[in-house]
Amino acid sequence: MKIEVLGGFRVSFGSSEVDLGTPKQRTVLAKLVMSPSRTVAIEELIDEIWPDDPPRSAVPNVRTYAANLRRTFEAHDAGQGVLIRQRGGYQLEVATDDVDLFHFLDQVERARQFNLRDDPESARSLLSRMMPLWCGPPLLGVPLGASLAAHVAAAQEQHLLAVEFLAGLHLAADRVEEALPLLWRTVAAHPIREPALLLLMRALHRRGDVAGAISVFRSAARTMRAELDVEPGSDLRRLHHEMIGHRAAVVPASPSGGSGRSDKSSAGTSTRPGIDGTDWDWLPS
């Protein structure tokens, strides 16, 4: 049995994909999938489907949805005993490795352990292989109650942390061109996410594009002021000030005694602390 929740919701036995039924029936299964090997009370399922005003028939309806799913699974030999009726609820017996989301999160944690054991290359390699598995938000198209919505939000945050972790590992390995696409996509989708902005600015600086890094900061600052009426955080402001100072330091004086402007000159190697590629305190742990 394989369960895919990333970018949609699919269940398959071998090459055979099963019909998960009506939207409410899919919500019941989604709640069970996101609570693996735990008995989910009927009341929890009712709250997920009808958060405000459940009908009088809510309990028998939930039992019907669960019975339909059990019959669907048991039509396949591998589906015998997968969905179990327990006292007061239901339990889905499925290995975490058989659910793409949980497999992804387990491998991200494995990569973090590699990094903690001073093996960043194994961490970087593992995460690079895992990233294509994330093909979209979890449970896309499934009606979500409050509990499932919270699960989805938490999973999406874990994905963003994993992307930032991998981008940091790429930069530490001096693979700027592998980090930049990850960071541009993240910042495009989350234009005021400060960890991604910091990494993107550092990646652009490492590439020699100080002007581009400063532009990223200014665009983010405008968005933060317009949408939240707040200023960028201290880390972003500090890095911006360092880069402004770095660019001024490498621009040669003009013959008239003024300062010329040359984006090309900003590609030189900085000797200012914090942006010369030797200070990696900002890397995710």
Rank of each mutant, 00 (worst) to 15 (best):
P181N: 03
S128H: 14
E44D: 13
L105G: 02
P54T: 08
L83W: 07
V28G: 04
P255V: 03
G141D: 00
H246T: 00
G277K: 06
Q25N: 08
G277E: 06
S215V: 08
K31P: 07
I244P: 07
T72Q: 08
N115R: 14
Q91G: 03
G277S: 05
R87W: 12
T278H: 12
Q107E: 15
R193Y: 13
A203D: 04
S262N: 06
T39I: 11
P255N: 00
F165D: 10
D119L: 14
A249P: 00
G274T: 01
L140D: 13
R85K: 15
L160P: 09
G88K: 05
L32K: 08
L171E: 09
P252R: 05
T96C: 12
H170P: 07
A66F: 07
Q25Y: 12
V11N: 07
A150G: 07
S215A: 14
D209V: 12
D235Q: 14
V94E: 07
Q86A: 15
S285W: 11
P232Q: 06
A173N: 13
L116D: 14
L204N: 05
V108W: 12
H246P: 02
V33L: 01
S35K: 13
L140P: 01
L20H: 07
E177L: 10
L69K: 12
W50E: 08
R10H: 10
R70N: 03
D106A: 15
F104Q: 06
V187K: 05
P232D: 02
I42N: 04
G136P: 06
L101D: 06
L69N: 08
T22N: 03
E178Q: 15
V40D: 07
P138G: 08
A41M: 13
L6N: 10
M130I: 15
G208Y: 01
T223G: 05
A249S: 14
R175M: 14
A75H: 03
L126A: 11
V99G: 00
L148N: 03
I84L: 13
P273W: 02
P232S: 01
I84A: 09
A66G: 03
L101I: 13
E17H: 13
R247S: 01
L283N: 00
L144Q: 10
V94W: 00
